[in-house]
Design a protein around this nucleic acid. Sequence first.
RNA 1: GCACCUGUAGCUCAGUUGGAUAGAGCAUCUGGCUUCGAACCAGAGGGCCGGGGGUUCGAGUCCCUCCGGGUGCACCA
Length: 641
Amino acid sequence: MFHSLERSISRAVANHLSTVFSVDAPVTTEQPKQSSFGELALPVAFQLARQLRKAPPLIARELADGLAGKIEGVAALEVASGYLNVRFDRGWFARRILDGIDAEAGPGASGKTIVEHTNINPNKAAHIGHLRNAILGDTFVRMMRAQGVSVEVQNYIDNTGVQVADVVAGFHFVEKKSPAEVAALARQPRFDYYCWDLYSRVAQMEQVKGWRAETLHSIESGEGELAAMGHVVADAIVDCHLNTMLRLGIEYDVLPRESEILHLKFWASCFEQLKARKAIYLETEGKNAGCWVMPGAAFKENAAEEDSKVIVRSNGTVTYVGKDIAYQLWKFGLLGKDFFYRQLRAYPDGHPCYVSQSSAEGAETVSFGGGESVYNVIDSRQSYLQDVVAAGLRALGYPDQARRSVHFSYEMVALSPRTCVELGLELSEEDKAKSYVEMSGRKGLGVKADDLIDQLIERARIEVDSRHADQDAGSRAGVAAAIAVGALRYFLLKFTRTSVIAFDLQEALSFEGETGPYVQYAAVRARNILRKVGDLPDFRAALSEETLREVLATEDLWQLLLDISRLDSVLAAAVSSGEPAALAKYAFQLAQAFSRFYHDYRVLDEPDAGRRNVLIWMTEHFARQLERTLHMLGIAVPEYM
RNA sequence: GCACCUGUAGCUCAGUUGGAUAGAGCAUCUGGCUUCGAACCAGAGGGCCGGGGGUUCGAGUCCCUCCGGGUGCACCA
């Protein structure tokens, strides 16, 4: 509601400017520093002062007089230090919300948006860095879907890369296990933990390079026992990852796999296009002689000769970036090739998750890719490579798609020194000197996602048990799980994407202050009130505009209603800036506002019937909007807390 | 060397396309449970927004410069 009134006011002012002053200027609105100034502040007079050769207060005054009483929903226009401040008609505003009249137009019916996130190498357990990626991506997806955008979620699986090869080498060369033994092991719980340890052991061994080469060769040819083992390992680990992510409410539509990109020769098509468009050329001299390279000028300003990027090595094999360009083309439906698919699993909510396969045999008739815009959730360290991929699209003659290829980047999750000590992690002298320590799969340095979730559940369980011993164990476990997920998701979402998270276990395990559980608690309290009210009155019949205006004359009640109504405005800003943290922040602030309301007003004890109805309506409206917000954040509201 | 990110309260971080008196959580101190349960609320202290220059009616926000952190710049993925 806030959003639409905001826009209609800004339109009305713009029209007035155009007809009366004959100037066309964009009219921006902002939130006044103090709520006593009204609901909206327009700095428009400052912007026009020079053009109109008039002092800002005079312009604002003329606007206020000229527009007085002419904008629906506006009670007053005031001038203060050059600003044009707007006061809403509180009764009108509340009644419109109550009637559900809110012409919120979403971004409009456009094509499909593809979001790729998670993308964990299937050779070890997921750690908290992977969680930041997945939670960021999943939340962004939920936010866009809430706006009515059609979104497809992809999780790319590099099941033929060096990381998988290293683990396979570990099984074969170090542990001397047969494929059958590995297959048996892969069926055991926490196989991903086993591989975590094995991988860090193998990756640090002298002989790894030779083993890796031999294993990779086998995997790429698709023949031999090592290749078979590679599939067993990768498939089992992918299963572990999907389970871990499901604990956090994260689901995928499709898992495109590297193995199919190889078998279906996606690269060959891409290579032909790149050559035909002269986006790459065969280098004949210098250090890159014999390689197909993309000139540095394609993705970098003032590029020198040495900035060229090798796409095809002199031995004829394609680099990672080359494959990524092919994959990106496929995402936009520009490759001229497609995968086949089979269903990998059905989530408990019935939603299916598909995986790519290389032949039509047994394939299901579903279709993925061909998006209009693509968001790749990848950490900021890969921005150079993402630039090269976008440059590839441009060079192929797809400037629009290049523009709609968004590198949704974020900074890494590192570990605070205190947490490293708590976890008993061995640190090098170099690491000890730093303010945070980067995680490393190779070194086995990191906090595993499932361990953290388990710890959070354990902690939540203690709190729940101490407060609700009367509830049965199954119910308490469910509540504890919801709280744990709320704490974790909020913790990883409250930082903006550009901020490095120095993960601190004690902070992450906290349920007080700016945390997920705090927000959940506010929602639970609202639900508790509503439960005790029982059957809700028919608000539309019970609450006249007059009653609403009367009750909302109380400043803090009005401020709460305003905060509640700001959701769409905040969501729009959070989506367009690609910053889920903005929505998380809003959820917290809204919860704070309600907590104060909860403390200051006794809804059930309110003697005046009309006023009581307004308070109940506000509580109900708050609960709905906060639940909507939490749903976008992937945080559930427990039955009790 | 070049490119990108970053420096805001003791700590961890917000701060809308430049706007009115710079905010929150944690920590510290002080108060508040009579079941809409305190995973809460109220209050206090705590800031030359890294330094300097510039643009502007107006700068935490934009530009330049210096200082301090981080990341990237492979025929690795």
